[in-house]
């Protein structure tokens, strides 16, 4: 592999991480469409799903353009197996109840916002452009999921207890959000990517601030689940992909 091909391959892997995060979370949120607590919540969740799907397509499209065979966004979305996906484990967790969904969203949105803010200064123009565009949407997402922390945490006893349980259960997956592996370091070093570790303090401050408003705190243990970025996924991703990829795979080569 020559230097250009190698750096393209690395960038492409990096883009897959961004794209898969959006794609997988969007697919999860689609499960709420038509089933939300109110029409307005239904619309709001669908909106976020649609935004993330749009972002996923931008990232995957860019990733596929770097691939020697120029695979399409659909080839990436529909023809990779679970171990080829690069999304954070947090995002493949099932919808659970409304508190589970909003906690997953809150942890992600607040992280996503910081990452996109950093990436909007990327030396790669396209990365910067996509991030800048996405940031406007994610700004709304993070407000919305933060507000749900207040409503559920400061609502009824029941909603509070469900929220606490959801925070407990999703916390395990948060560590991975700030892990800097070789690829991340490389991307950061060349100015394309960002330093995830450096975002941790700001993230923690924001999340603690929101939860503090309703007198809640993050679990004290260190989150330990990790592997999604390297393709080590759980069974939930598998059943999700089986449904998502069914038509494409059963009809290889068909146009839709």
């Amino acid at each position: 592999m020559n230097a250009v091909a190698e750096s393209n391959e690395q960038l492409s892997q990096y883009l897959l991480r961004m794209g898969d995060n959006c794609l997988i979370l969007s697919q999860r949120l689609c499960g709420w469409t038509g089933h939300g607590p109110t029409l307005e919540d239904d619309l709001a969740l669908s909106n976020v799903a649609l935004d993330l799907l749009g972002q996923a397509r931008l990232w995957l499209d860019y990733a596929s353009s770097l691939h020697p065979t120029k695979r399409s966004e659909d080839a990436l979305a529909y023809w990779r197996d679970a171990h080829e996906f690069r999304n954070l484990l947090l995002l493949e967790q099932p919808n659970g109840n409304f508190a589970d969904t909003q906690v997953r969203q809150f942890f992600f949105d607040s992280w996503h916002f910081l990452v996109l803010t950093a990436l909007s200064n990327s030396t790669d123009e396209k990365v910067a452009a996509i991030s800048t565009k996405a940031l406007k949407e994610v700004d709304y997402h993070v407000r919305r999921s933060s507000h749900w922390m207040l409503r559920l945490g400061g609502g009824t006893e029941l909603s509070r207890s469900k929220l606490i349980l959801a925070l407990e259960q999703h916390w395990n997956y948060v560590g991975e959000l700030f892990e800097m592996d070789e690829l991340e370091q490389e991307m950061h070093a060349c100015g394309i990517g960002c330093d995830l570790g450096a975002l941790h303090a700001e993230w923690l401050a924001y999340v603690n601030d929101v939860l503090g408003k309703v007198e809640l705190a993050l679990p004290s243990r260190t989150p330990f689940q990790s592997g999604g970025k390297r393709g080590k996924h759980g069974e939930h991703l598998l059943s999700m992909l089986m449904e998502m990829q069914y038509l494409q795979r059963v009809h290889p080569g068909a146009q839709w």
Partner: peptide, 29 residues
């Protein structure tokens, strides 16, 4: 239709269908 969003065979179609079902929620509103 919502049951098919998660099964849409391309991302483009998924996006169209998601937006469509959203429109229906809007119409209901």
């Amino acid at each position: 239709e919502a049951a098919w969003i998660t099964r849409a065979p391309t991302l483009q179609r998924k996006s169209i269908l998601l937006a469509k079902v959203q429109d229906e929620a809007g119409h209901a509103q």
